[in-house]
């Protein structure tokens, strides 16, 4: 059968792993600074930095559309909104001091982390790294190759794996690679009801925000 040409990322998987750990450290570091720093504005800036590191992780996870949406919405709008709020309110003069329940909060956080980590490592995930079936891997990373004789999928469901050679660009037609069109189709077809309700919710949020700020008792609008 010969060596299948898997997605070339296997060559540089060490770089991808190193990049993932770097951005994960940045994200967690930013989050820790958010909850410990006294100055609320600096906390907002660290939050924006954490969001940016998470966007980089989404790009590494091949979720390009979500990575871009994260930058656009979180870094470009929510962070600016929080910074605005901090600037206008001119918060508690001494900064945000930790409340008295610090030990209890830390205990709760540590317990939650322990529970989640335990669940994560003790579940038998069907991980792509554990899948040795090359047809399945080819399907996931978007490169299809031609050898249907030994594939269990060809026997079980009676279909065939689409064959494409290396030079055609059809190899990138996998839905998991170019996710924008597929997400759009999902939103319009399978998930159209939540999509419309989301529109309604955003309209309600807009009207609610305006109603909160337009106070007829005071003159300012």
């Amino acid at each position: 059968m010969g060596e299948p040409a898997l997605s070339g990322l296997y060559e540089v998987s060490r770089v991808v792993d190193a990049a993932f750990w770097l951005f994960a450290a940045l994200a967690i570091g930013g989050a820790v600074m958010v909850v410990t720093v006294k100055d609320v504005f600096k906390a907002a800036v660290f939050l924006a930095g954490s969001f940016l590191a998470l966007a980089a992780i989404y790009f590494l996870l091949q979720a390009e559309f979500i990575g871009v949406v994260q930058i656009l919405v979180y870094v470009g709008a929510v962070s600016i909104l929080i910074a605005f709020a901090v600037m206008i309110i001119a918060d508690v003069p001494g900064g945000s001091r930790p409340a008295r329940g610090r030990i209890a909060a830390a205990t709760a956080a540590a317990l939650m982390m322990a529970a989640l980590a335990f669940t994560t490592y003790n579940t038998n995930w069907t991980d792509i790294g554990q899948i040795t079936d090359e047809d399945a891997i080819a399907g996931l990373v978007g490169v299809y190759y031609e050898d249907t004789s030994t594939s269990p999928y060809a026997d079980a469901q009676g279909g065939t794996i689409r064959a494409a050679d290396e030079t055609t660009k059809d190899a990138r037609s996998g839905a998991l690679i170019d996710s924008t069109g597929a997400i759009g189709t999902l939103l319009i077809r399978e998930f159209v009801l939540p999509f419309e309700i989301l529109g309604l919710l955003l309209a309600a949020a807009l009207i609610g925000g305006l109603a909160l700020m337009l106070n007829p008792r005071t003159e300012d609008k």
């Binding site: 994200a27 967690i28 989050a31 820790v32 958010v34 909850v35 609320v40 906390a43 907002a44 929080i82 709020a85 901090v86 309110i89 918060d91 508690v92 945000s96 001091r97 930790p98 409340a99 329940g101 610090r102 209890a104 909060a105 830390a106 709760a108 956080a109 540590a110 939650m112 982390m113 989640l116 980590a117 994560t120």
Partner: peptide
């Protein structure tokens, strides 16, 4: 994901300012 969630829980319960 678990680490971020736990840090968030700590932040919610231990700060005095609403914005944090």
């Amino acid at each position: 994901s678990a680490a971020l969630f736990s840090i968030g829980i700590y932040g919610v319960m231990s700060r005095r300012s609403i914005i944090t």
